[in-house]
C-alpha cells in the first residue's frame, strides 16, 4: 500500500504521467503482435531487430543528428535489419544464423561509431545523446539504452507511442484474415492466394515500429520480452481467440504497470522491472498448468 502511495505522488510529475501513457500504449501495441510472434516463432527476430538500434544510435552519434532525425535513422536501422533477416532466411541461411549475423553486425557497427565519436569529441561527447533521450540529466546514457528508463519517454515519446499503437491496432485489424491464415499455415495461406511475403514484410515493419518506441522505456536488451511474454502467457491459459487476445493484453498492461511502480519506488531501471513482473505472471501460468494437469490425473484415477 505504501508503495502505491509513493507512486501516486510521482504521478504529480509530467514525466511520470507521460511515461505511464507511453507504457500503456506500448503494452497494447506489443500485445497485438505478441500472439503472432509466439505462434509464428518470431521471438528471436524481435531480439535481432531491437539490437539493430545500436547501429542506428552509432550513426546518430557520428552525424550529430537531432532527436527527430535520430528516431528515423534508428527506425530505418531496425527495419533494414528485419528485412535483411527475412532476405537472408529466404536464401541458404537458417533463420537463427541470419539473426545472429545481423545482430552482431549492427551492434559492432554501433559500438564502433560510438567509440569513434567519443575519441573525436571527448569530453562532452555524450551531449548529443542526452538531448536525444530526453534532455534529462539522468540516468547515464548506456544504462538507458540497455535497460530503458521512465525518464526517456517525454512528451514526444508519449505521442509517438500513441501513434504507433493506433497504427499497429488498425493494421492488425485490417489484415486480420490474411494474418490469421498466415499464422496458422503459411503454405496453405500461400495456396489460397495470400501474399505471404508481403504479410511477412508488413509484420517486420510493425515489429520495428513497436521496438523503436518501446526501446526507450524497456531498453534494447529487453524490449523483445514485451513481444514474447504476453503471447506466451496467453498460450498457457486459453486456446480461444477472444480470451487469448484478452489475456495477452491484460498481462502486457499488468507487466508495464507493475514494472513502472517498482521502477518509481526503488529508482530501478524500468525494463528489468517490467520483465520481472511479466516473468512472474508467466510462472503463475506455468503453475496453473501444473495444477490442472495434476488435478486431471487425480480425477482420472
Amino acid at each position: 500500500m505504501m508503495l502505491a502511495w509513493q507512486t501516486l505522488e510521482y504521478l504529480e510529475f509530467a514525466f511520470a504521467r507521460q511515461a505511464l501513457i507511453a507504457a500503456l500504449c506500448i503494452a497494447t501495441a506489443a500485445s497485438a503482435l505478441s500472439g503472432i510472434v509466439v505462434l509464428k516463432r518470431l521471438a528471436f527476430v524481435g531480439q535481432g531487430i531491437s539490437h539493430a538500434a545500436f547501429g542506428g544510435i552509432g550513426v546518430v552519434a557520428i552525424l550529430g543528428l537531432s532527436a527527430a532525425a535520430g528516431e528515423l535513422v534508428i527506425f530505418a536501422f531496425c527495419l533494414a535489419s528485419a528485412l535483411a533477416i527475412a532476405g537472408l532466411t529466404r536464401s541458404r541461411t537458417e533463420e537463427d544464423t541470419a539473426i545472429g549475423i545481423v545482430l552482431v553486425a549492427t551492434m559492432a557497427l554501433g559500438f564502433l561509431l560510438l567509440g569513434l565519436r567519443q575519441s573525436l569529441a571527448a569530453p562532452g561527447g555524450w551531449e548529443w545523446y542526452r538531448s536525444y533521450i530526453s534532455g534529462s540529466p539522468r540516468p547515464d546514457g548506456w544504462e538507458a539504452i540497455l535497460f530503458g528508463s521512465v525518464h526517456t519517454a517525454g512528451q514526444t515519446g508519449m505521442w509517438l507511442s500513441i501513434a504507433v499503437m493506433v497504427i499497429v491496432l488498425l493494421t492488425v485489424w485490417w489484415f486480420r484474415r490474411p494474418l490469421m491464415a498466415f499464422v496458422f499455415d503459411e503454405v496453405a495461406a500461400q495456396a489460397s492466394g495470400v501474399r505471404t511475403r508481403a504479410i511477412r514484410i508488413l509484420l517486420m515493419v510493425l515489429l520495428a515500429l513497436v521496438v523503436v518506441v518501446g526501446m526507450k522505456l524497456v531498453g534494447v536488451v529487453l524490449i523483445s520480452a514485451m513481444l514474447i511474454l504476453p503471447g506466451a502467457i496467453a498460450g498457457q491459459f486459453t486456446r480461444r481467440l477472444l480470451a487469448h487476445l484478452a489475456v495477452t493484453w491484460v498481462s502486457a498492461v499488468l507487466g508495464v504497470l507493475g514494472g513502472l511502480v517498482l521502477s518509481f519506488e526503488f529508482d530501478l531501471p524500468t525494463g528489468p522491472c517490467i520483465v520481472l513482473v511479466l516473468i512472474a505472471i508467466f510462472s503463475l501460468g506455468a503453475g496453473w498448468q501444473l495444477l490442472l494437469k495434476t488435478a486431471a490425473r487425480l480425477i482420472g484415477r
Binding site: 500472439g35 505462434l39 509464428k40 484474415r177 490474411p178 490469421m180 491464415a181 499464422v183 496458422f184 499455415d185 503459411e186 503454405v187 496453405a188 489460397s192 492466394g193 495470400v194 496467453a234 498460450g235 486459453t238 486456446r239 480461444r240 481467440l241 480470451a243 487469448h244
Partner: peptide, 20 residues
C-alpha cells in the same frame, strides 16, 4: 504444417479461406 497451438476453434479454421 499447421500451428496447432493457435487459439482458433474448428469453425474459425473452416471459415479461414472463405474469409479472405
Amino acid at each position: 504444417h499447421a500451428a496447432w497451438n493457435a487459439p482458433l476453434n474448428v469453425r474459425q479454421v473452416v471459415a479461414m479461406t472463405a474469409a479472405l
